[in-house]
C-alpha cells in the first residue's frame, strides 16, 4: 500500500528547464527587473548574486507568482507560470524560501513542515486530484483509510526531512516555530520547501544571519541535496561568495535589474565588472579626490 502510494507521489516529477524570457517589472519609476532572460536546465544549481536593490528578490517573487511581470514570460518545463497564482505554481513543483524566512509562528515545527505536504495529501498540480473538499472533509470526520494512509506516509516524509537537519529541528518538533532561533527558522523554511519534493527550489539568502559554522553546515546540506536529487533544479540568491563557490555550477550577477554576468563561479567572481558592482564604481580606481 505504502509503496504504491510512494510511487504514485513520485511518478509525477518531470523536471524541466526554468526559462525566463524578457521578464520586466517596474515599481513606480523604479525598474526592478529589466528584460531578464536566462534558462536554467533541469538539475542545475544556479546562484544569483548582486548588490542590494539589483532585483534579485524581485526575480524570485516573479517566478513564484507573488509579483506579476509587466512584460515577458516565465516557463518551467511544459508549464507557463507567467500568470499563475502562487499556490498553483507551488503545486507544479516550485518551492521557495523567503528572504525574511516566513515560518508559521504559531504552528509547531512539525506542523509547519507538514503544511508543505498539503498538496501531496489532497492532490492537484503535478499530481492527479485525490480528495476534493467534500471528500477530504468526510475522510477526516469519519477517519477513512485512504486519506489516513496518505497522511501517515507524508508524516513519515516530514520526519525524514526534519532529520536531514541533524538534531537542529527534529528534537524541537513540538515547539512552536516562533520559539526557534533565527538560523533554525531558516532551516525550518527550507525543510518545508524540501518536504514538497519540488522540481525547482528557490532559496532567497538561505544563510543570511547565520554564523560561519552554521553557514558551512547549511552549504554542506545543500550540496548533499544536490547530489542526492540530481533532477532537482536549485536557484539560490546568496551573498556569501564562499557558499557560491562551494555550491554553484553557474553564477548570474545582477545589477540595476539586469543580468551583468552569466558564467561559472570562477569566471564571474573574477570579472572586474562584478568587483565594481559590489564594491561600487569609482572613476579613478582608488585614488583620492
Amino acid at each position: 500500500m505504502s509503496a504504491a502510494l510512494t510511487q504514485a507521489l513520485a511518478a509525477h516529477r518531470h523536471p524541466g528547464a526554468l526559462v525566463l524570457e524578457g521578464v520586466t517589472r517596474r515599481f513606480g519609476g523604479l525598474v526592478a527587473t529589466n528584460e531578464v532572460t536566462f534558462t536554467v536546465p533541469g538539475g542545475e544549481l544556479l546562484a544569483i548574486v548582486g548588490p542590494n536593490g539589483a532585483g534579485k528578490s524581485t526575480l524570485v517573487q516573479l517566478i513564484t507568482g507573488f509579483v506579476r511581470p509587466d512584460a515577458g514570460r516565465i516557463r518551467l518545463g511544459p508549464h507557463d507560470l507567467t500568470r499563475l497564482p502562487p499556490e498553483r505554481i507551488s503545486a507544479l513543483g516550485v518551492a521557495r524560501s523567503f528572504q525574511t524566512s516566513r515560518v508559521f509562528p504559531g504552528l509547531t515545527v512539525l506542523e509547519s513542515v507538514l503544511v508543505g505536504t498539503q498538496v501531496q495529501l489532497i492532490g492537484g498540480g503535478r499530481l492527479p486530484r485525490a480528495f476534493n473538499t467534500l471528500a477530504e472533509t468526510a475522510s477526516v470526520l469519519f477517519g477513512l483509510p485512504a486519506y489516513a494512509a496518505r497522511r501517515r506516509l507524508l508524516e513519515d516524509r516530514a520526519e525524514a526531512t526534519l532529520k536531514l537537519f541533524g538534531d537542529r529541528l527534529w528534537p524541537r518538533r513540538d515547539a512552536p516555530a516562533f520559539s526557534l532561533s533565527y538560523a533554525n527558522r531558516r532551516r525550518l523554511e527550507i525543510a518545508r520547501a524540501l518536504v514538497a519534493e519540488p522540481d525547482l527550489l528557490l532559496l532567497d539568502e538561505p544563510t543570511a544571519g547565520m554564523n560561519p559554522t552554521e553557514t558551512g553546515e547549511l552549504a554542506d546540506l545543500i550540496a548533499q541535496l544536490h547530489a542526492d536529487r540530481p533532477a532537482l533544479t536549485i536557484v539560490m540568491i546568496e551573498h556569501k561568495l564562499q557558499v557560491v563557490r562551494q555550491l554553484a555550477s553557474r553564477v548570474i550577477v545582477m545589477n540595476h535589474g539586469s543580468v551583468l554576468v552569466d558564467a561559472t563561479p570562477e569566471e564571474a567572481l573574477a570579472d572586474p565588472r562584478v568587483v565594481t558592482a559590489y564594491l561600487g564604481r569609482a572613476e579613478t580606481s582608488h585614488a583620492h579626490g
Partner: peptide, 24 residues
C-alpha cells in the same frame, strides 16, 4: 486534522501558505 492545520497556517502567514501550495 490537516484541514485545521491548513486553517491555522493561513492565519499565521498567508503568503507562506500560498507559497507552500495550500489552496487558501
Amino acid at each position: 486534522s490537516p484541514i485545521g492545520r491548513s486553517w491555522r497556517a493561513i492565519r499565521e502567514d498567508r503568503p507562506a501558505a500560498h507559497a507552500a501550495g495550500v489552496p487558501v
